[in-house]
């Protein structure tokens, strides 16, 4: 089995970027970069120093970068690579081919990850540079966090799109209600949050500086990595199995 099919990739890329949701994909990183540029401009106005404090950089990158940008981008890219094709029925043109279903899932996941790299991980790294003015620990840590979280979100939301036709709604509830709202009031919930797991990888990169930078996560770095890998691999395998048994044309 080949893990990649260039034709599936081309069709997927075309269907993800050929839709109106592509605009939303662009809006999110632009908003992060604009926010960071504004923070730096305000810091320059206030203190004469062009750089913002590490604490503010961490707040912005953790709150907006890992807390809003990556889950939403993962949701749009992860569901967008396969959900619309399943809803419309055009997936039939992929499924009536002698291609292993895991090849289809892995290729589509690859496209989703490429989108997240381009419009999520790179903007997070660029935002770190804008805020701190250099490629320091903060920028490196959050780039790793965005990458690890983005991978897990893509795999998780791709699976959701294969499993349910309401993937976007379920994903939004997970990303915005479960992770952000419920997680704030029920501490145990944070253990089941990909956002916290990706934050844990950032804490891991920060090492001893995490305390100085006032960054903490609900789980330890090793646990965070393990959980992210388990979710990414588990979701991908299960999505492949479900795609093998995808039922089309349930109407009589």
């Amino acid at each position: 089995m080949s893990p990649w099919d260039p034709t599936v990739a081309r069709l997927t890329w075309h269907s993800v970027l050929g839709r109106r949701r592509a605009l939303v994909l662009l809006l999110l990183p632009v908003a992060l970069l604009a926010l960071c540029a504004l923070a730096r401009a305000l810091a320059a106005l206030e203190g004469g120093d062009a750089e913002v404090s590490d604490a503010l950089a961490v707040d912005l990158l953790a709150g907006f970068g890992l807390g809003v940008l990556m889950p939403l981008l993962g949701l749009i890219a992860g569901t967008g690579v396969i959900g619309p094709e399943i809803d419309e029925g055009s997936i039939v043109y992929l499924l009536t081919k002698p291609i292993d279903r895991f090849t289809i899932v892995l290729t589509k996941l690859g496209v989703a990850v490429a989108v997240v790299l381009l419009l999520g991980v790179l903007p997070v790294a660029a935002s770190g540079l804008v805020l701190t003015g250099e490629l320091d620990l903060v920028t490196a840590g959050f780039t790793v966090g965005a990458l690890s979280g983005g991978l897990a979100y893509c795999a998780l939301f791709l699976l959701l799109a294969v499993v349910t036709r309401h993937a976007v709604v379920v994903g939004l509830i997970y990303a915005l209600v479960w992770e952000s709202v419920v997680g704030q009031f029920v501490p145990g919930v944070q253990n089941l949050s990909a956002q916290q797991w990706s934050l844990a990888t950032v804490v891991g990169v920060f090492g001893d500086d995490a305390e100085r930078l006032e960054l903490s996560a609900a789980v330890g770095p090793a646990t965070g990595w393990v959980l992210l890998v388990v979710v990414a691999v588990g979701s991908t395998v299960y999505a492949g199995l479900r795609l093998r048994r995808l039922r089309l044309g349930a109407e009589v």
């Binding site: 069709l11 075309h14 269907s15 050929g18 055009s90 039939v92 044309g249």
Partner: peptide, 9 residues
């Protein structure tokens, strides 16, 4: 298939 949807672009 009966359904009309293709890769319209």
């Amino acid at each position: 298939p009966e359904r009309e949807e293709l890769y319209d672009g």
